[in-house]
Nucleic acid binder design. Structure first.
Length: 782
DNA sequence: TTCTCAGGTACT
DNA sequence: AGTACCTG
C-alpha cells in the first residue's frame, strides 16, 4: 500500500478526565471544572480543564488556586488518592471503554495514550467507495467537520464534486477518500458518544503526524480533514514546536540551529543540509516532514507494553530512611499486583521482567535517576510481595548513594526523591506452563475453550479473520439477545467461527448492530431534530445514520470563519491549539466555544449511559409531540419512536452486556481469590471494593430480578443466586461473555502492506553526529 | 515549597 | 541493560 495515500485518523477525547468526572457526577455538567491531582500545595496541580473553564482562561499548568482566581465558581474534582498515590484507574477504564468502540471499526487501531488512538481506515474507505457514489455525500452527513484551507466544508466537497481535478495541486483521488473517511469518522465518533457518552475530536489526514496536528485545530467535538494541498497553507504559520517529536529539546535545537520558527521555513533546506546539521536519520525525517511526508505506520496495538507506577518525593518529602522506602515500595508493589491481575484476566499474558527506577538527591541538590531490572524466574510468584522485596533488595545494593550509612540506624546516605516499579516484556500465557496463573483459577470451572485463538490463524488472512471475529461477536450478542427475548436457549453451533451465516456477512457489516439500529431508527423518525438552517439543501439527505446522533452542533462551520480569508482561518485555528497559553485570539474563540458548550449541555444533560437497565420496564415519558410520536429513552435521553422503543432498549442491553464484561470478570476473580489463602490484609480490602461493584446495576441482575422469591440455584461461574427457571439462560450469559471476551482479544496484525512486519529505512548510510541534545527521532526508522 | 504520573521509544 | 527524551 502506498504510504502517501492512506487515510489516517487520530481520535482524541476532549478534556478526557473532565468528561469522566462529569459522567460520574452529572451535577458538574455545564459548569467550569478542572481535574486536579492531589497536592497540598496551592490547591493541587491541574491536569485537565473542561471547555467552559478554558473559556474563562483556566489552563493546564495552573494550580488549583490560580484557577479559582480566574474563575471563582470553578469546581475542582480531584484524582482519587489510594495509598497516598494518585489513582487513575477510572480514567484508564474509561479509555479502554472508548477504545473498544473504536476497535470495531478497524483492526488497525493504535492506542497512543489513555485518551488518544490512531486509526488507519484506508481499507474501510476503499470498501465504502466501491459501494457508494461520492456525489451523494453532503456535509449534512458529517456535522462539525472542517477542511483545513477551506472556509466551509461544503467548499471542499464542491471541489471534489466539480470534476475540476485537472489541477496538479488537487489530488482528487485522495480528497475523495478523505471525504469518505470523514463520513466514517463521523460515524465512529457518533458511536463513541452513543455508547459511552463521551465526545471526542478527530484529525483526518494521510499520515499520523498530520492527523495529530489537525486534530487539535477544531475542538471540542469536531473533526478536521487535511487535504494534501492544504499542507503548505498550514505550514506557513505552523510553529515547528507544534509538530509531534519537535515539542521538546530537539525542536528547540532545530529552531536554534536553522534560525527558524515555522514549518514553512524548514522547506528550503535540502535533505543533505539537514542531515549534515542533525544526523542522517533526523535529517531525512525533517526533510520529509517538512513536505508533509511521514511513513510511520499505524500499528495494531491495543494493550500497553508495560504496566508501572511511580511516586515522586520532592522537596522535604524526600525519603530518608529504609523504613519509608520499604513502605512505599510495598504500596507500589501492591498496585502493580492489582493491575497485573486484571491484565492477566483480560489479556492472558504474563510479564517476564520488572524494572525498578529511582532518583536520589545529590549533594548539590540535583537529582540523578537510575534504574535496575530483574528478570522473573520461573518459580517466582508474581505478587506484590515479590515486587516489593525484589525492588527493595535491588535498590539497597545497587547504588552507593542508597546504601544505609554504616552506623546510624537505617538512615539513607542520600535522600530518595522518586521510586517506580514497572513490569513488562509480556509473553502470552500458553497452556503448558507450570506457573500458577490467575487465569487458571478462572478457567477451572469452564469445561473447554470453544473459540480458537485468533492469533493462531495464518498471517495472510489476519485482517479478514479479525473482521469476521468482529462480526461474530456482534452476531453472537445479537443472537443472544434474540434468543433471550424468545426465552430460547442459545445454540453453540451458531457461534462457531466458521459458521456460514457469519462468513457470508459482508465485512463492512461489522458495525451492523449499531448501524442497523440507527438506520431503522432514522427511517422511522426521519429527523426529529430541528433542522439547522444553514440554508441550501439542508435536509435532502438527512437519512445518514449520523444525522440522528445528538452531537453538539454549533454551526460554527458557517459562522466563525465567515468572511475570513483562508490564512486568517488557519491562524485562528492555530490559536485554538489546546496549550497555547498566551494567545489573545484564543480567548475570543473560546467565547464561541462557550456558546457551543451551552448548547451541547442542553442537549446531553439527560444522558445517563449507565442508568439502570430496568428503565426499560418503566413507562417512558412522552417528550416530543412533533410529527412522529417519540419517547425519551431513560438510558440515553434520546428521542425514540414509540414503536421502536423495545428495540432501542435491547440495544442498550447489548451495550450493557459489553460494559458488564469487566465486572463479571472481576467478580469471578473475586470468588477465586477467596479460594486462595489470604496472604494479607490488603486483599480483603480489594474484595470489599469488588463487592461494592456488585451493588451497581448489572445485566446479570437484570436477568435475575424478575422474581426473587422463586427457587434459586447458585451459579458456579459467578456465585450469583439465579432463579432455577432462569438458570440455563444465565449460563448462556456466561457463555456469551466468554466468547465476547475471547473475540475481544487483541489480534496480532502488525501492519498492512508490510508482510515482513519490519519498517523501512528511509536511507542507510550511517553518519554519526554526537552533539545532538536529543536523538529520539530515530524511532521512526526502527 | 515541587510541572504528577504513566507510558513509549531510541540511543549507547 | 541502563539512560534520556517525548507526550499528555
Amino acid at each position: 500500500m502506498d504510504l502517501e495515500n492512506r487515510i489516517v485518523v487520530l481520535i482524541d477525547m476532549d478534556c478526557f478526565y473532565c468528561q469522566v468526572e462529569e459522567k460520574l457526577n452529572p451535577e458538574l455538567k455545564g459548569k467550569p471544572i478542572a481535574v486536579v491531582q492531589y497536592n497540598p500545595w496551592k490547591g493541587g496541580g491541574i491536569i485537565a480543564v473542561n471547555y467552559v473553564a478554558r473559556a474563562m482562561g483556566v489552563n493546564r499548568h495552573m494550580r488549583g488556586d490560580d484557577a479559582k482566581e480566574k474563575c471563582r465558581e470553578i469546581q475542582l474534582p480531584s484524582v482519587p488518592c489510594k495509598k497516598g498515590k494518585a489513582d487513575i484507574s477510572k480514567y484508564r477504564d474509561a479509555g479502554i471503554e472508548v477504545a473498544k468502540v473504536l476497535q470495531r471499526f478497524t483492526t488497525l487501531l493504535e492506542r497512543a495514550s489513555i485518551d488518544e488512538a490512531y486509526l488507519d481506515i484506508t481499507i474501510p474507505v476503499q470498501k465504502r467507495l466501491q459501494t457508494i457514489n461520492v456525489h451523494t455525500l453532503a456535509s449534512s452527513m458529517m456535522p462539525n467537520t472542517f477542511a483545513l484551507g477551506y472556509d466551509s466544508f461544503d467548499h471542499f466537497i464542491s471541489d471534489i464534486h466539480s470534476c475540476d481535478s485537472d489541477s496538479i495541486e488537487f489530488d482528487f483521488d485522495h480528497a475523495q477518500k478523505l471525504l469518505v473517511g470523514a463520513q466514517i469518522v463521523s460515524e465512529i465518533r457518533a458511536a463513541v458518544f452513543e455508547e459511552t457518552g463521551y465526545t471526542c475530536s478527530a484529525g483526518i489526514a494521510h499520515n499520523k503526524i498530520l492527523a495529530k496536528l489537525v486534530c487539535g485545530m477544531n475542538k471540542p467535538n469536531k473533526q478536521t480533514v487535511l487535504p494534501k494541498h492544504s499542507v503548505n497553507i498550514l505550514y506557513k504559520t505552523l510553529s515547528v514546536k507544534k509538530v509531534k517529536h519537535l515539542g521538546g529539546k530537539f525542536g528547540d535545537y532545530v529552531c536554534e540551529i536553522l534560525k527558524i520558527q515555522t514549518m514553512g521555513q524548514l522547506q528550503p533546506f535540502t535533505e543533505r543540509e539537514l542531515q549534515a546539521k542533525f544526523d542522517e536519520k533526523n535529517g531525512t525525517w525533517l526533510y520529509n516532514i517538512a513536505r508533509g511526508i511521514d511513513i510511520e505506520l499505524v500499528q495494531a496495538k491495543f494493550n500497553p507494553k508495560s504496566i508501572g507506577c511511580c511516586k515522586n518525593f520532592k522537596g522535604k518529602s524526600a525519603l530518608l530512611d529504609l523504613e519509608s522506602v520499604k513502605k512505599w515500595l510495598r504500596d507500589l508493589g501492591d498496585e502493580i499486583e492489582e493491575r497485573l491481575e486484571k491484565d492477566a484476566l483480560e489479556n492472558n499474558r504474563t510479564p517476564k521482567q520488572m524494572v525498578i527506577s529511582f532518583s536520589v538527591q545529590l549533594q548539590d541538590g540535583r537529582d540523578t535517576s537510575s534504574s535496575r531490572s530483574y528478570n522473573f524466574l520461573p518459580d517466582d510468584e508474581l505478587c506484590g510481595e515479590l515486587f516489593t522485596n525484589k525492588a527493595f533488595e535491588i535498590l539497597i545494593d545497587s547504588t552507593e548513594g542508597c546504601k544505609p550509612k554504616a552506623d546510624s540506624n537505617k538512615k539513607l546516605r542520600a535522600p530518595i526523591t522518586f521510586l517506580g516499579i514497572s513490569v513488562g516484556k509480556f509473553e502470552d500465557n500458553t497452556e503448558n506452563k507450570k506457573r500458577k496463573k490467575i487465569k487458571d483459577y478462572f478457567c477451572a470451572g469452564s469445561s473447554k475453550e470453544t473459540v480458537p485463538k485468533s492469533n493462531e490463524t495464518t498471517k495472510v488472512n489476519e485482517t479478514k479473520i479479525t473482521n469476521i471475529n468482529n462480526i461474530d461477536k456482534n452476531y453472537i450478542l445479537h443472537k443472544f439477545l434474540e434468543t433471550n427475548n424468545d426465552k430460547k436457549q442459545i445454540k453453540k453451533e451458531t457461534m462457531g467461527p466458521n459458521n456460514e451465516k457469519v462468513l457470508e456477512s459482508p465485512l463492512d457489516k461489522q458495525e451492523s448492530f449499531f448501524v442497523n439500529f440507527l438506520k431503522k431508527d432514522q427511517d422511522n423518525i426521519k429527523c426529529n431534530q430541528v433542522p439547522h438552517d444553514n440554508g441550501s439543501k439542508s435536509l435532502n439527505k438527512v437519512n445518514s445514520p449520523i444525522c440522528n446522533i445528538v452531537e453538539c452542533d454549533d454551526d460554527s462551520n458557517d459562522t466563525v470563519y465567515s468572511g475570513s480569508t483562508i490564512n486568517e482561518e488557519i491562524s485562528k485555528s492555530i490559536a485554538l491549539f489546546e496549550d497555547d497559553p498566551l494567545d489573545i485570539a484564543r480567548v475570543s474563540n473560546m467565547r464561541e466555544l462557550l456558546k457551543t458548550n451551552e448548547i451541547e449541555v442542553d442537549k446531553i444533560v439527560e444522558v445517563q449511559p449507565r442508568a439502570d437497565i430496568s428503565s426499560r420496564t418503566v413507562t417512558p415519558e412522552i417528550t416530543d409531540t412533533s410529527h412522529i410520536e417519540t419517547v425519551e429513552c431513560f438510558e440515553c435521553g434520546k428521542a425514540v419512536p414509540l414503536n421502536e422503543f423495545d428495540e432501542h432498549a435491547d440495544y442498550h442491553i447489548a451495550l450493557k452486556l459489553r460494559e458488564d464484561e469487566r465486572e463479571v470478570i472481576r467478580k469471578a476473580k473475586d470468588k477465586t481469590t477467596l479460594k486462595e489463602p489470604a496472604r494479607d490484609v490488603k486483599k480483603k480490602k480489594s474484595v470489599q471494593e469488588l463487592n461494592k461493584n456488585e451493588a451497581k446495576p448489572s445485566i446479570s441482575k437484570f436477568f435475575t430480578k424478575f422474581d426473587m422469591t422463586a427457587p434459586v440455584k447458585m451459579c458456579t461461574e459467578c456465585g450469583e443466586k439465579i432463579a432455577v427457571e432462569k438458570f440455563s439462560e444465565h449460563l448462556d450469559f456466561h457463555e456469551a461473555q466468554k466468547l465476547s471476551r475471547e473475540l475481544n482479544k487483541k489480534t496480532t496484525v502488525h501492519s498492512y502492506g508490510s508482510s515482513s512486519g519490519k519498517r523501512q529505512r528511509i536511507s542507510s548510510s550511517p553518519i554519526k553526529k554526537t552533539k545532538l541534545p536529543c536523538k529520539s527521532i530515530d524511532m521512526f526508522f526502527r
